[in-house]
Computed example of a mutant assay.
Amino acid sequence: MILGITTLNRKTLIKYATLLVATSVLSTSATAQNAYPENPVTILVPFGPGGTSDIMARILAKHLRQAMGGNLIIDNKGGAGGAIGMMQLKRAKPDGYTLGLSVIGPEVLQPGMRKTGYTYQDFDHICGTYSVPLMMMVPQDSAFKNLQDVVAFAEKHPKQLTYGTSGTGTLLHIAMEMLMKQADSTALHVPYKSSAEMVTGLMGKQVMVISDTTTVAKQYKLRPLGIFSDQRLESSPQVATTKEGGWPIQATIWGGLIAPKGLPQDIVATLETACEKAVNSEGYKADVEPLDTPPHFMGAKAFAAFAKAESEKYSKLIKEMGISNEKPQ
């Protein structure tokens, strides 16, 4: 009978009741964590299909499925140099079911040029996955054989050298303007909405040169002219660097996985672990090796610090170049 319970028994019952409640909470928490993802996870790619970002996102999604289970869906949201997709990601619910592919252009370059409505601080960084220098490229039948040919044409024919990019304010745009500035030359910038459209413009002779990663060069069988780096690529030892030509320019495309600000830490940890497993897997390495885009994993804290440093560096550079007031096209 309850009236016969001693003080000791009461304390014992309270102790066991507290233990049961704690166990129940831990069990529920563990079940919720183990259940993620219960629904399909969407990865927003801030560019159209066919470019480096899209290709790398699809490879990552493939191996994330294997690392953490569940279905991952790629959703391309191109336009405004990637800012449209980034704003959609910022507005998404931070529940782990809408993630995004972070790329240097949309995350740190666009906010450095204009008011985008977001900065790198509006996102939780999960993992960095790749890093590769830009490469200038042309169709196989182009008269240009190297970077010197391109610069010489620009010097002789001001504003007649046309080059395409995947958008105003992208690294593709900034790298080419840096080259023109250092070479004391000028060229005409033609922005497109995606790398795929940019390549179409190149093949259709609407522009004379483009710059993108080796991924795009191999995907579309384009001929490389030079690399925006101080070291040659092991996979393309015949391609000279901008530094060798006398223009010390480094422009590297990097990417990774981010989420709307406020993602629960248990989900961040789950995704970070799955990302590390995916990027370091033999399958992932095999998929990216033909594209000359080697794995480059960074954990959540390291990736967030890296994005901050890149944002500060390029914001300063953009102001120095005088393109900070350009509007997206």
Rank of each mutant, 00 (worst) to 15 (best):
A307I: 05
T215I: 10
G299H: 09
L89S: 01
Y163K: 01
K159Y: 14
W254Y: 14
D141A: 07
L72C: 04
T31D: 07
Q219T: 15
T273V: 05
G299A: 06
N9I: 08
D95F: 06
F306M: 09
V21K: 08
T270V: 11
M68V: 15
I43F: 01
K205I: 02
P191A: 08
L233S: 14
P295E: 10
D149G: 06
T6K: 14
T98D: 04
L13Q: 09
I84W: 00
P49F: 08
V239I: 13
G69Y: 09
D292R: 02
K193V: 13
G51I: 09
K156S: 13
P94N: 03
Y120V: 14
I267A: 00
A57Y: 08
F153E: 04
T23D: 02
Y284H: 08
V25G: 01
Q110C: 03
D266A: 11
E312K: 11
V132P: 03
Q110N: 12
Q88K: 11
V279F: 03
K277G: 00
D149Q: 06
M178D: 10
L291G: 03
S281V: 09
L257M: 04
V209W: 05
A269P: 00
L26G: 12
Q66H: 09
H125N: 09
L134W: 02
D141T: 02
M178H: 01
P49H: 05
G322T: 08
M180I: 01
L26M: 13
S131H: 06
K181Q: 14
H189S: 06
G164V: 04
G164R: 04
L19Q: 08
G226Q: 05
G96T: 14
I84E: 14
E155C: 01
I104G: 01
M137Q: 14
A309N: 13
Y284C: 10
A307L: 04
A187D: 03
I174N: 04
P248Y: 05
A305C: 01
Q88P: 00
S53W: 01
V279L: 06
G322K: 13
A196I: 02
L72D: 02
D184A: 11
W254A: 02
P111V: 02
I227L: 04
K277Q: 15
A183T: 07
T242H: 02
L179K: 07
S131L: 09
F228G: 05
V151P: 04
V190A: 01
A143V: 10
I2N: 12
G81N: 03
A61S: 12
P290W: 07
K145C: 06
R232E: 07
G51Y: 04
L44R: 12
M87I: 01
K301L: 12
D184K: 15
G256I: 10
S229K: 07
P248M: 08
N76Y: 06
A83F: 01
P158A: 09
S53E: 07
A83N: 07
P328N: 09
G245P: 06
R58Q: 15
Y130D: 08
V190D: 01
T12Y: 13
Q206S: 10
G255I: 15
L72Q: 09
K221M: 02
G78Q: 15
T273Q: 15
A274G: 06
I174M: 08
L60C: 00
L147C: 02
T168R: 07
